[in-house]
């Protein structure tokens, strides 16, 4: 299993927002702000069916990248920026409650208010019909101090999937 460098893991564990880039049916990049969730091995994101275009794109092309770029949205001792490339799969086998079992505990740590919203599921039923995006990192870039005017450190995590 690929192991992300520690500074990138620290970013993933605290970031409240990241930018997930997927490729559309014409291989054009499309970027979505999303909360990144990390269990020490894989990166997870979750998407409501209301905003499920990205899920269709991932099903069409599994190649994705995820950036953590906003200094206001992370709490680490020393700010850094990171981009992780990888292959993603969509788990929509149980849109109603699959995400509650797999990613809600991670989500709750970053956005405790989600439990309050989940308690009002009757008011937002489609928002809580959600797929899980599971991302397996293959390469990572790290910019210390967030300075992208300097070359990044590059981490090859697995052989490229062709």
């Amino acid at each position: 299993m690929p192991l992300l460098p520690e500074p990138i893991e620290a970013l993933l564990e605290t970031a409240l927002v990241s930018e997930l880039t997927v490729l559309d049916s014409r291989d054009r990049p499309v970027t979505h702000p999303l909360i990144p969730l990390y269990d020490g091995e894989l990166i997870y994101l979750t998407s409501s069916v209301l905003f499920s275009k990205k899920l269709e794109h991932i099903k069409g092309n599994s190649r994705v990248s995820l950036s953590i770029s906003d200094p206001n949205a992370v709490q680490v001792e020393r700010f850094a920026r990171a981009t992780i490339q990888g292959d993603a799969t969509v788990d929509d086998s149980d849109l109603h409650s699959g995400w509650e079992e797999r990613v809600l505990p991670l989500w709750r740590k970053k956005e405790p208010v989600i439990d309050m919203f989940l308690g009002k599921r009757v008011a937002l039923p489609l928002f809580f019909e959600r797929a899980i995006i599971e991302m397996r990192p293959r390469r990572a870039f790290l910019w210390e101090d967030g300075r992208t005017d300097r070359p990044p450190q590059v981490f090859e995590l697995v052989e490229a999937v062709r």
């Binding site: 930018e19 970027t31 994705v64 995820l66 293959r138």
Partner: peptide, 20 residues
């Protein structure tokens, strides 16, 4: 906004995004 993120397709065919 305080920064931008440029996303493009790299030589391996993967999307790649860089803040600036």
């Amino acid at each position: 906004f305080e920064h931008a993120v440029i996303a493009f397709v790299d030589a391996d065919g993967y999307p790649l995004s860089v803040a600036t």
